[in-house]
């Protein structure tokens, strides 16, 4: 049976990708809020914000916007997983000789694909707004790698939410604090402008190190320690949420 894990995961991923292709509105609603925020910050608030970085404001805030995009995108992962668990199709899969983990991994890969699509759409809007980078191929790959890791981490949190939720609304509610987190970070304004305790929180929460890393990579500046702090946060949270999700799944389905 184990020999089929990859094939089964592939087949099931194809199934949920088809769901996304047939309801492209999930991609549109995922990107609409980040794009609106980007317009708001660049054309309304941005003029009064002094980042002290010397780069254009759209360059400054795009990394944070990308994280917000992913945080709102994973809400759909929880939603799709929840619907699957509600319907009879999940029981059918469970009564078939399919590797148990394939069902979850299919949702995780689908989440990855959908979020990368959303991120690409947001970058596509940022370009005409003046986003520019001279980042090398290596730097782009590093950015992509960090965003993939960020998506995976949030996706496994979404899996916990999708497995635990009792209502459709409950399944996606977990994403609101995640969407909010970039606002109390270095994503839109330098943390130095915040009052002491807030600045302390902003400087020591995961989003700041991730934003700083991505921003430095786009600006072709040295990433310093931020990349290691970001990776430690992401891998740590990923490991914990993965563990919780699998344990939850085992209890849910024997």
């Amino acid at each position: 049976m184990t020999t089929h894990v990859l094939a089964d995961t592939g087949v099931l991923t194809g199934r949920s990708l088809r769901h996304i292709l047939r309801s492209p509105d999930t991609i549109i609603t995922t990107v609409i809020t980040p794009i609106a925020l980007m317009l708001l910050f660049v054309y309304v608030l941005g003029g009064a914000i002094n980042t002290g970085s010397g780069q254009s404001y759209v360059n400054y805030m795009l990394p944070g916007i990308l994280l917000i995009t992913i945080a709102s995108g994973v809400a759909y992962t929880a939603y799709r997983l929840f619907l699957d668990m509600q319907g009879g199709i999940f029981e059918r899969f469970a009564s078939m000789p399919i590797a148990r983990s394939s069902v979850l991994w299919a949702h995780v890969f689908t989440s990855l694909a959908a979020n990368l699509l959303s991120v690409a759409a947001v970058v596509g809007v940022a370009l005409p707004m003046g986003f520019r980078t001279g980042a090398s191929v290596g730097a782009w790959l590093a950015v992509a790698g960090i965003l993939v890791l960020f998506t995976l981490t949030l996706t496994w949190i979404a899996v916990i939410a999708g497995l635990s939720a009792r209502t459709v609304d409950g399944a996606s509610a977990f994403s609101y604090p995640l969407i909010f987190l970039p606002f109390i970070s270095s994503a839109f304004v330098p943390t130095g402008s915040m009052p002491g305790p807030v600045a302390w929180f902003a400087e020591n929460q995961p989003v700041t190190s991730i934003v700083n890393t991505v921003r430095a990579l786009f600006a072709q500046e040295p990433v310093g320690n931020d990349i290691w702090i970001a990776l430690a946060w992401l891998l740590g949270i990923l490991a914990v949420s993965y563990g919780f999700a699998i344990a939850k799944y085992r209890r849910r389905i024997r």
């Binding site: 088809r18 769901h19 319907g87 009879g88 059918r92 009564s95 000789p97």
Partner: peptide, 18 residues
């Protein structure tokens, strides 16, 4: 056992989107 059986549950287990 799963190799040997098929289950049609009380509620139609079809994928509505497909």
């Amino acid at each position: 056992v799963r190799e040997s059986i098929s289950l049609t549950g009380q509620f139609a287990a079809v994928d509505e989107v497909l």
